[in-house]
Simulated scan of single mutants.
Amino acid sequence: MELSYEQVAAFAQQGGTVYFFLIFLAVVVYAVWPKNKAKFDHAAQIPFKED
């Protein structure tokens, strides 16, 4: 079986879409994970602290 450029390009596009969706999903899960709440709450208050 010989692959054409169009087949390879379509596979790369689909694979890239799945890859970046999985990375996006991992970032969202990390951001909403309950264990990280204290870390993000602390980081959110940094701009309001006095020098």
Rank of each mutant, 00 (worst) to 15 (best):
P34A: 10
Y5L: 07
P34W: 02
F20C: 02
T17K: 11
Q45A: 01
Q7H: 10
L25P: 01
N36L: 00
S4T: 15
F11T: 04
A10D: 10
A9P: 04
S4H: 12
F40L: 12
K39W: 02
F48T: 09
G16L: 06
K39N: 03
S4Q: 13
F11A: 15
G15M: 05
V29N: 05
K37H: 07
V29R: 08
V18F: 07
Q13V: 01
N36R: 04
K49S: 01
K35M: 01
E50S: 13
Q14V: 01
H42A: 12
A12T: 09
Y19P: 03
P34Q: 07
Y5T: 07
F20W: 11
Q14G: 11
E2K: 15
N36I: 02
M1T: 11
F40Y: 13
F20N: 07
I23Y: 11
V27C: 15
A43R: 10
A38F: 02
I46A: 10
A9G: 01
Y5Q: 13
A26N: 07
V8P: 09
Y19G: 00
Q45M: 06
W33M: 09
F40C: 03
V32G: 08
A31K: 10
A26T: 03
D41I: 01
G15A: 10
I46W: 03
A12D: 10
Y30I: 00
Q14K: 15
F48K: 11
N36G: 08
G16S: 11
M1P: 09
F24T: 05
F48L: 12
V8W: 06
A12W: 01
Q13F: 03
K39V: 04
E6R: 15
A38L: 08
K37P: 02
S4M: 09
G15S: 12
E50P: 00
K49C: 00
E6A: 10
I46G: 04
Q13M: 10
A9L: 12
E50C: 03
F48S: 11
V8T: 15
L25I: 03
M1D: 09
Y19T: 09
W33I: 03
G16F: 02
Q45I: 02
Q14E: 14
A10R: 13
A10W: 01
P47W: 02
D41N: 12
A9N: 13
V27E: 04
K49R: 14
Q45C: 01
A31Q: 13
L22A: 15
A43V: 00
V32F: 06
P34F: 01
F11P: 00
V8F: 09
G16M: 07
A44C: 03
F24E: 03
K49D: 06
K37I: 03
K35C: 05
V18P: 06
E6D: 15
Q14H: 11
F21D: 15
A10L: 05
A43W: 02
Q14D: 13
W33Q: 12
E6W: 05
H42G: 02
D51T: 06
K35G: 07
A44K: 05
E50Q: 14
A31W: 08
V28P: 05
S4L: 08
A26E: 04
F11G: 07
K37A: 12
V28H: 05
M1V: 08
E2Q: 14
A9T: 06
A26I: 00
A38H: 07
K49T: 00
V29A: 13
N36Y: 03
A26K: 03
F20A: 00
A31H: 10
L22C: 14
H42D: 08
T17I: 00
E50G: 13
Q45Y: 04
F40Q: 06
W33K: 12
T17N: 14
